[in-house]
Amino acid sequence: MKALPYASTADSHIAHLVRRHRQHSSPLAAIGPYLYLAPAMILVAGFLLYPALDTAYLSLTNAHGVSQPKFIGFENYAAFFTDPAVITSLENTLVWVIATLLFPVGLGLAVAVLVNRIPGENLFKSIFYLPYAVSLTSTGVLWSFILSPYGVLNAFLGAVGLGRWAISWLIVPPANTYAMIGATTWQSMGTNMVLFLVGLKSIPAEPVEAARVDGAGNWQTFRSVTWPLLRPFTAIVVAMAVINSFKVFDIIWVMTQGGPYRSSETLAVTMYRDAFVLFQSGYGSAIAMFLSAIVISLTVVLLRTSLREEVA
C-alpha cells in the first residue's frame, strides 16, 4: 500500500483508511482488482499474443499442409535468399515505401501548404480527405475498373489521341505496381494533408511574418521558417507512412492478388500466398517474422523520435 502523496487533508486521510479497511476485509479483495484486468488480458493473450508466439515457433519448422511439423532451425530464413518470389516481393515492397514517401506524403504536404488559409479551405480539405472514408477494398475495386483494359483511363487516353499509351495497367509489371500506388495515393493523400495542416496551424505567425518583412519570398519563407518548424509533424507522418507501406496488403490483394506470376507481390502478400494458397505455413511464418522485424524496428525508431520531439 503506497502512502498518499496528498494525505494532508483529513478527508483524504479518512478515505485512505476506509479503502485500507475494505481491501483487507476479505480474501477476494486482494485479487479483486485483477479481475477487472482479466477479460482484456484473456482476449489479447488468446487471440493476439499466443498466435504471435506460435508464428515465431512455426517459422522454425517445415509445417505445411496437414503433415506433422518438424523443427528445421533457420532453414526457412536461409531460403529467402534463393526464392525469386521473396526477392521480387522485397523489391516491390521497397518501391512501395519510396513511392509512398513521394506521393501520399510529399503530395500531402504540397496540398496542405496549397490549401492552408485560402478561400474554401474546409471544402478542399473535405474533398481530399473523403477517399479515406472509402475502404481500401472498395478503392481497389473502383480503381480496378478505372485501370481495366476498357476502363476509364484507357478510354480517356483514346479520347485525347494518346491511345497508343493505353496498356493493361494491372497486367504488365512494373506498371501494375505503379498503378496500385496511384490508387493508394488517391485514397490516403488526404490523411497526410490533414496532419500537415494541423502542423501548419500550430506554427506561430511571428516568425513567418518576420521573414516576410525581411523580404523573403514564398519559397524562401517555406524553406527557412515553415519547414523547420513543421519537422515534428513531418517526422510522425513519414514514420507512419513508411510503417504502413511495409504492411500494404488489401489493395494489392483486391487489384492483382500479387500477380500476374507473383510480379506485384509485397511481403505481406507473399506471406499470405505462401501460407494460405500454397499451404507452406512454416515458410509463411518465417516471412511474417521477417516483416515483423522490419516493422517493429521502425516503430521503435518512430517512438524514440516522437519522444525526443516531445522533450525538445
Binding site: P51, A275, S285, A288, V295, I296
Partner: peptide
C-alpha cells in the same frame, strides 16, 4: 497488452 498493437497482422493469421 499494448504489445498487441506492434505486430503486422501476418503474425496472427496462421495460428
Amino acid at each position: 497488452i499494448y504489445s498487441g498493437t506492434i505486430f503486422p497482422f501476418q503474425m496472427y493469421l496462421i495460428p
